[in-house]
Amino acid sequence: MTQTLALVGAAGGAGTTRLAVEIGATLTRTGRDVAVVDAAYETQGLADYVDTIEADVTELVTDGAPLDSVVQPAALETPGQLSLCPARAPFERLARAKTAGAAETLEKQIAAIALSHDVVIVDTPPVATNQAVAAVDMADRIVAVTPDSERGADALARLSGRVRDVGESIDAVVANFADGTPQVADADTRVPATETTAPSQCPSCLDDETAFAPAVAAAVEAALDTTVELDFETSGRLDGLLR
């Protein structure tokens, strides 16, 4: 059965898009087919991970673009397939994509994508737009991503309130860029920063020589309440990152 995950940024700059790609890539290592859908229309960050865009998510929900023109397979040598569904739109179409009607269409299209994938990850902005509400409303699991900082802890509290306001609750919390003393007390798992930041060099989770890959795997387990059957060389430097 397909699982739909709303990966919700607690604040701008939380690294939600990058983490969505990394979580998706990690899942493909286990043989799952995964789609990442960009509902963060303002930042449109997922587009940076795609070489060419025939049609984007906003065209899908406003102008009826064919679904297969939006779902872009990523070139990964993993047992499963990672597909990216980016947003890249001019202001006029962006405005139309944020309407309540377009949000309803987004829900239907995510359901359609789920028919051919094992997991659908929706890159979701802080819950203040129609498309964000649609994403958390239909998701099987809602996961907050927040920087591991005092700012991130404050942003998480605000996001938790917004999610409650729409009748939902957060299932797991990922503290991102977690390299020092933990600042987000409610985090279920922590993911360190990486030296690799350019989208063209990602995903980084395929490199088992760093602390990043097992930390992302732990984030997958927390996000989807599942077990990831991947083996990593663990050491003392990973303590506190995985859990």
Score class of each variant (00 low, 15 high):
1 M>D: 11
3 Q>R: 13
3 Q>D: 11
5 L>M: 05
7 L>P: 14
8 V>R: 03
9 G>D: 09
11 A>D: 10
12 G>P: 08
14 A>Y: 06
15 G>Y: 07
17 T>S: 14
22 E>Y: 08
22 E>A: 07
26 T>K: 07
27 L>F: 15
29 R>E: 15
30 T>H: 10
44 Q>F: 05
50 V>Y: 08
51 D>W: 12
53 I>S: 08
54 E>G: 14
55 A>Y: 05
56 D>M: 08
56 D>K: 10
56 D>G: 08
57 V>H: 00
58 T>M: 09
60 L>R: 00
62 T>E: 01
62 T>A: 06
63 D>M: 15
65 A>E: 05
66 P>V: 12
67 L>M: 13
67 L>C: 09
67 L>I: 15
68 D>Q: 04
70 V>G: 00
70 V>M: 02
72 Q>F: 03
73 P>I: 05
75 A>D: 15
77 E>S: 14
79 P>D: 06
80 G>D: 01
82 L>F: 04
83 S>A: 12
87 A>P: 06
91 F>H: 04
94 L>C: 00
101 G>Q: 10
104 E>Y: 11
111 A>P: 04
112 A>P: 01
114 A>V: 14
116 S>R: 00
117 H>F: 09
122 V>E: 06
127 V>Q: 09
129 T>G: 00
134 A>R: 03
135 A>C: 09
139 A>G: 13
139 A>M: 09
140 D>K: 03
145 V>K: 02
146 T>V: 10
147 P>Q: 12
153 A>Y: 05
154 D>K: 15
156 L>M: 07
161 G>F: 13
165 D>H: 07
171 D>Q: 02
176 N>Q: 11
177 F>I: 04
178 A>F: 02
179 D>N: 15
184 V>Q: 11
186 D>H: 08
187 A>T: 03
187 A>N: 05
188 D>C: 12
192 P>K: 10
193 A>N: 08
197 T>H: 13
197 T>I: 14
198 A>D: 14
199 P>A: 01
202 C>W: 14
209 E>A: 13
211 A>W: 13
224 L>D: 00
225 D>S: 07
228 V>Y: 11
231 D>T: 13
234 T>S: 06
236 G>K: 09
238 L>F: 07
243 R>S: 01
